[in-house]
Design a protein around this nucleic acid. Structure first.
Length: 913
RNA sequence: GGGCGGUUAGCUCAGCCGGUCAGAGCACCUCGUUUACACCGAGGGGGUCAGAGGUUCGAGUCCUCUACCGCCCACCA
């Protein structure tokens, strides 16, 4: 019989070697020019709505980690799906210059070389940065390709390129003209390590145990005007060095303890400054001593108090957090050295009241971990309230949808409570703020690349203007990404066609940094929301649930994984294990499972290719199986493929990508391979059947495999592409799966699904009985069976297949149970289901022992059936259930009860006999 | 101080509109050299779905509270 099904040479290597497969495939895609919506190989249907994915451009610094790989996997999944649907798709790749992060990294490198930002100077530093970035850039892009990103590389953007720079200038000028960008003196978060201000979002509140010191300030004697050694007011502080910047002491207006002191004057030690005691309701009488030192230049609360009372603000710090000349005798000391000295000096003076441990939350720099110092600076701010309102309106009206939905609450809260955004950075690597100042203090903001031609306020020539030395917060240019990349502010074709974007995918950790800013700026500058859907992914954690970080040393390099198990396995594992918005722990086992799945698919395809009936010429064009020649197996395979297609479509529409992989894993492995191929083997090998029948079977396998490869392609693009290439194609199929059409769900055949389902149960029952009875798996045992009459025709057709998978031979069908019982040997193993009853095997070995095992097995079965029956009966016994439950449910319970009762009865009979 | 997640088999997690939903992978046990695959096949053990109330004919699935774990937001010296 094998002579008819001659195994031809297979197109695929025996062993699945992902690394080789993947390298070759990516080159084929590139050569075919299929990534760009307007690429030569694109089969996009221009009448369909374009699909645009917005990817957070990775930082040029360093290299990609698993989080990036996950991002890319999800984004690429969506874009490939849309591409296969025929939509013009744009996946625009890019890189972010990451000003502070890049400077932080470069500064570290320079430090090792004994150089620094200051030693190089601005121009040399920037030149060095450009070289550095040029090398990392290549690494990052290569990583993205290796993971399989089908991005349009011809449109690649960098947030420091000229297109982006133009957008930045225009955006800022627009915001300025609209009164939404302003320059003012305000408290900013100063990072002494980075030597720049940072936004509120970049300050990490860190719980720490500090100290709360009590310090006595001496009141001035009303008569002499000199400090009174005996009359003091005690304040409490966690930052004693800031006393040098104190400009008042505040007490609560209703605090009887201090009522008489309000309006008096105290002398700040060391700087010997006389400041007033003021009354302000901001003071919490219960905290500390109820008297608070006020340092308007270094504390947000104090600043507000200072403004209310017209107090001066004295900045006592330098950029590197050493004390400034304003600190008098302590000038030049580091802030903490100064603190120590001041405490010691206070002690000497007898003005240190005491100290106690104090739990507090201290702000640290997200980048350098330095303790942030609030400082008064003149900087640029974006007025966010009006922008935030429109962003909120967009999500509330449904113009933009946030997924998963629960993040809407976070979004709402942040945008409602939003504070103005400090966008000035005292860094070098970034977009220079396009603002110029003239000697008379006028401000000129210009979008022109060459800058303004003259002062906007007084006609002084450009030569007399000085540009702001600061640059923009990185996120300012990132916030323009969805449209700056398409050529905005020019009215380009790309902008018209691909803006707003369809889906913006990113991790929930940058919802404020990036998503909110894109929304705010996008709406204001373009008049449209930048994207219709925000899809927020969870974060990747290590197997212990720890966040991956370089300092912890638990960062996994995706390339290492890819080399080992393949990009497909990595992608599958990342998607399979995730629920939208939920973090996932990622480790070896998930990866191995995914690799095994790819391997399974590889081997299944090899089998199908190798099983081609000899009557079909190698390289034949794809044919549909002839419907009249299809057996139950074939109809079942087709129906299951249809069911899976429909289910995958639903999951895709709901962004349930983990569900997509689960569906495909189960369908391909659990159904197609475990049952479909096993059953098909019999037909394919049956020489007595007409060749046309075997051909129909083979074409069915090819068809199902073709469908599954298409459905799986967005998740595992490489292996599916490679396998698909080996499959017969239709004349109208493209050369590459990546641009092949997404399957359309065909109608299902519910009847055959139910039948095969029943036979599956029967086979499992037989296998279980054999296994429990310790019968040799390889032994062929006789099987006697009686079936629900409706199942008989199908059973007859599948008889050889069932025999094969159940290892049963010969098989006898009996018209009723009496005959079955009469014929079947008493020592056989009984399998009793609702629509079938079977006896397999003959007694052998020790009859009493065998009988004991058989009895135990059946007792377990009957117990299980009884408990199900009881549950069903008690439900049915309830009037309320029969009255209130939908008729279909009640009816279902009735049928179930009948089936179970019958099954139990038969099991009991068997046990009784 | 607010808000949001999580708590389901030993481990990692699925369970979308409440009714065969008690599941998967890994781990574990027993078998297996049947011609796609040992990166495999067959079978099996294992969970009162954190706890307590409530809604409902019926609740891992909805509501309330509690307990842990995690995260986000928040100007208290």
């Amino acid at each position: 019989m094998t002579d008819e099904t001659t195994r031809r040479s297979m197109d695929l290597p025996k062993a699945y070697a992902p690394a080789e497969v993947e390298a070759a495939i990516y080159e084929r895609w590139l050569a075919a020019d299929v990534f760009a919506p307007d690429g030569a190989g694109s089969r996009a249907d221009d009448s369909l709505e374009p699909f645009t994915i917005i990817q957070p451009p990775p930082n040029v610094t360093g290299s990609l980690h698993l989080g990036h790989a996950q991002r890319t996997a999800v984004e690429d999944l969506m874009i490939r799906h849309a591409r296969m649907l025929g939509r013009p798709t744009l996946f625009l790749p890019g890189l972010d210059h990451a000003s502070i992060a890049a400077q932080f990294v470069l500064d570290g490198i320079l430090a090792k070389e004994g150089e620094s930002r200051r030693s190089l100077g601005r121009e040399a530093y920037l030149a060095r940065m450009r070289t550095f970035v040029e090398t990392t850039r290549g690494v990052i892009l290569a990583q993205q390709r290796r993971v399989g990103a089908s991005a349009d590389w011809s449109r690649i953007r960098f947030t420091m390129d000229e297109v982006s720079a133009t957008a930045v200038r225009h955006a800022f000028a627009r915001l300025y003209d609209d009164g939404l960008a302003y320059r003012t003196e305000a408290l900013v978060n100063w990072c002494p390590g980075c030597r720049t201000s940072v936004s509120d979002l970049e300050v990490v509140p860190t719980p720490e145990t500090g100290s709360l010191w009590s310090i006595r300030y001496h009141l001035l004697d009303l008569r002499t005007g000199l400090p009174d050694p005996a009359a003091t007011i005690t304040v409490a502080t966690t930052r004693p060095e800031t006393i040098l910047g104190d400009t008042a002491v505040a007490v609560h207006p209703d605090d009887a303890r201090y009522r008489d002191l309000v309006g008096r004057t105290v002398r700040i030690p060391f700087v010997e400054r006389d400041v007033p005691v003021i009354a302000d309701a901001v003071v919490d009488r219960a905290f500390g001593t109820g008297a608070v030192k006020i340092t308007p230049a270094h504390d947000a609360d104090d600043r507000a108090t200072g403004v209310r009372h017209g107090l001066p603000s004295i900045d006592i710090l330098e950029d590197d957090a050493r004390l400034s000349v304003a600190a008098g005798p302590y000038a030049g000391l580091d802030r903490y050295a100064a603190r120590t000295r001041i405490l010691a000096d206070l002690e000497v003076r007898g003005d240190l009241g005491g100290t106690k441990p104090h739990e507090m939350v201290i702000g640290r720099c997200q980048r350098s971990s330095d303790v942030i110092e609030p400082r008064l600076k003149t900087q640029w701010f974006i007025r966010t309230k009006p922008l935030a309102e429109r962003a909120l309106a967009a999500t509330r009206s449904g113009r933009t949808t946030i997924l998963p939905e629960r993040f809407v609450k976070v979004w709402e809260h942040w945008l409602t409570e939003i504070r103005d955004w400090n966008v000035s950075r005292q860094l070098w690597w970034g977009h220079r703020i396009p603002a110029w100042y003239c000697p008379d203090g006028h401000v000129t903001v210009s979008a022109a690349a060459a800058g303004p031609s003259a002062c906007a306020g007084c006609d002084r020539p450009a030569g007399e203007l000085v540009q702001d030395p600061d640059i923009f917060d990185t996120w300012f240019s990132s916030g323009l990404w969805p449209f700056s990349t398409l050529g905005w502010p020019a009215a380009t074709d790309d902008l018209r066609r691909y803006y707003p974007g369809s889906v913006m995918e990113t991790g929930y950790d940058i919802i404020f940094f990036w998503v909110a800013r894109m929304m705010m700026m996008g709406i204001h500058l373009t008049g449209e929301v930048p994207f219709h859907t925000v899809y927020l992914s969870g974060l990747i954690r290590d197997p212990e649930g720890q966040k991956m970080s370089k300092t912890k040393g638990n960062v996994v390099d995706p390339l290492g994984v890819v080399d080992e198990t393949g990009a497909d396995a990595l992608r599958f594992a990342l998607i399979h294990g995730a629920t939208p918005g939920n973090d996932q722990r990622f480790g070896r086992t998930k990866l191995e499972n995914a690799r095994n799945f790819a391997n399974k698919l590889w081997n299944a395809t090899r089998f199908v290719l190798g099983a081609r009936p000899g009557t079909i010429v190698e390289g034949s064009e794809r044919r549909d199986p002839d419907a009249v020649l299809l057996g139950p197996t074939e109809r079942w395979i087709r129906s299951r493929a249809a069911a899976t297609t429909a289910a995958v479509d639903r999951a895709m529409a709901e962004y349930q990508f983990g569900e997509v992989t689960r569906l495909l894993y189960d369908a391909i492995w659990g159904e197609f391979c475990d049952w479909g191929l096993e059953f098909a083997k019999v037909r394919l090998g049956e020489a007595s059947l007409p060749p046309t029948v075997r051909e129909a079977t083979w074409w069915t396998l090819v068809e199902a495999l073709d469908t599954y490869l298409r459905l799986l392609h967005p998740v595992m693009p490489f292996v599916t592409e490679a396998l698909w290439a080996a499959l017969p194609h239709r004349a109208d199929d493209p050369a590459l799966l990546i641009v092949a059409r997404w399957p359309v769900a065909a109608p299902r055949d519910e009847a055959v699904e139910a039948e095969i389902g029943a036979f599956g149960d029967l086979v499992r029952g037989i296998r279980n009985a054999r296994s429990e009875a310790r019968l040799a798996p390889s032994a062929w045992l006789p099987l006697d069976v009686t079936l629900d009459p409706t199942l008989v025709p199908t059973f007859l057709e599948l008889l050889p297949a069932i025999g094969r998978v159940a290892r049963a031979r010969p098989i006898a069908i009996h018209p009723d149970r009496e005959r079955l019982h009469a014929v079947a040997v008493a020592g056989g193993l009984a399998i009793i289901g609702s629509s079938y009853e079977a006896v397999v095997g003959r007694p052998g070995g020790d009859p009493t022992r065998a009988a004991g095992i058989e009895r135990a097995r059946l007792e377990k079965e009957v117990a299980a059936a009884r408990s199900l029956l009881e549950a069903t009966r008690s439900r049915l016994a309830d009037d309320a259930f029969r009255r209130n439950a939908p008729p279909a449910i009640v009816e279902g319970a009735r049928t179930r009860e009948a089936e179970l009762a019958d099954q139990v009865r038969r099991l009991e009979a068997r046990l009784g006999g």
